[in-house]
Computed example of a mutant assay.
Amino acid sequence: MLPYIGSGAYCYANSSAMLLETIGEKVSPAVLEVLSGVGIGAMWHEEQKVIYFGQEIPDRGVSHALELLGFRWTEKSADAEGEPPLEELRRDVEHGPVLLGPLDMGYLTYNPNAAYLGGADHFVLAYRMDEREIYLHDPAGFPFVSLPLSQFVLAWKAEKIFDRLFSYHYWTAPKRVGSPSEEEQAANALRLFQGIYQESASAKPNASVLYGKEAILRVVKRIEEEGGLSPAETGHLSYFAFQLGARRAMDFAVFFSKHAPELAAIKERQAKQFGRCHTLIVEKNEQELANAMRVLADIEEEFRQVLCAK
């Protein structure tokens, strides 16, 4: 197995790692990413014509990871139609950094690409507030940036993020209350992942949302029977989904290598297949991409069956 170390869209995992670092706890973002469960499965949204290689969302995933690692924390949100809880946030920031998210990246104006990122969710660490601005470590490559509170409130409301659970959401004050062994973490993670698959399996049939293998094959149908992928779909897969899928799958492979080697082997094959899909979409070779995604769909189903049989 050849691990990969590098950048990636691990905003909530990186922000969680920074939050834990403030209390002297060093946890790899790769471990936090795996334990979040966000990279388990696949989901197609028909209305948006978009696939995500995962079925859980970071709004819940951060809490999954903290719990599996033995932490307790405070988690807060507020009604999107009400007043943003700036004063409550200010009081909490005075006692220590907070992990904020989801935020709408389109309002993060310190990012020179913000105008093109509206509706994309993001997670950051806030470490200071004053009367005009909030000060952040943004894991997308922007340490020590600040944002006017007027812009921050729009980002924090997250009303354009279609799969959000919360507005004005954040985590703060983590505290270790347990020290699960690696074996215990792996066993508890398996139960979490099985639960994610079971939740989608028990969902009522719905043509607007597909899961797992069927979600991936829906993209194949878009290529072969519906005139090909739209520019938006191509951009999502080229700039985000395939490369993130490859990195996540490799981190899962490393995590499983000691306690579930069969799952690790499947995830390593999946990582390589994600990389193959990325190469093909950038080359604009849609026919070969369709074939590669059929293989990816089979690997996803194999992983689901092996994991759920444990």
Rank of each mutant, 00 (worst) to 15 (best):
P205A: 02
L296N: 11
L117P: 05
F256R: 10
K76Q: 07
Q194E: 09
G118R: 10
F256Y: 15
L117E: 14
A290W: 11
A249T: 09
W171T: 10
K272H: 13
G41E: 01
P84K: 13
S7W: 08
F144K: 14
D298P: 00
E225A: 07
V124T: 11
M129C: 07
P97M: 08
F142T: 09
S28N: 12
S77K: 05
E233W: 00
E75S: 10
S36T: 13
A309K: 15
N206W: 02
E67Q: 14
E131C: 01
F162A: 04
Q194W: 02
D92K: 12
Q305P: 00
Q48W: 00
S77G: 02
L19N: 07
S150M: 14
F252W: 13
W156M: 03
R91T: 09
R60S: 13
A260K: 15
P143V: 04
F53G: 01
A203V: 01
P85C: 08
E300Y: 03
S257F: 08
E233L: 04
G195C: 03
R164T: 03
R72F: 08
T279L: 12
R72I: 08
A173W: 07
S238Q: 15
N188F: 11
P148H: 14
W73M: 10
A155R: 02
D104K: 03
S208F: 04
V38A: 09
C277W: 05
E159T: 08
L19K: 08
G212I: 02
A290N: 06
E94R: 14
L108Y: 07
Q185P: 08
M18F: 11
I57T: 04
T109P: 02
K204M: 07
D121I: 00
A187D: 14
S15R: 10
I57E: 03
G8F: 10
E283H: 10
I266Q: 12
E224N: 06
Q270V: 09
F193W: 15
V50Y: 01
A80N: 00
L289G: 06
R248E: 01
D298R: 06
G39V: 08
G141P: 12
A158K: 01
A17K: 10
Y197C: 01
L103F: 06
P180T: 13
Y170Q: 02
V27C: 09
S257Y: 09
A246N: 08
F152C: 03
G101F: 04
N188D: 15
L20W: 06
D163L: 06
Y116D: 10
A9H: 05
A249G: 12
Y116S: 10
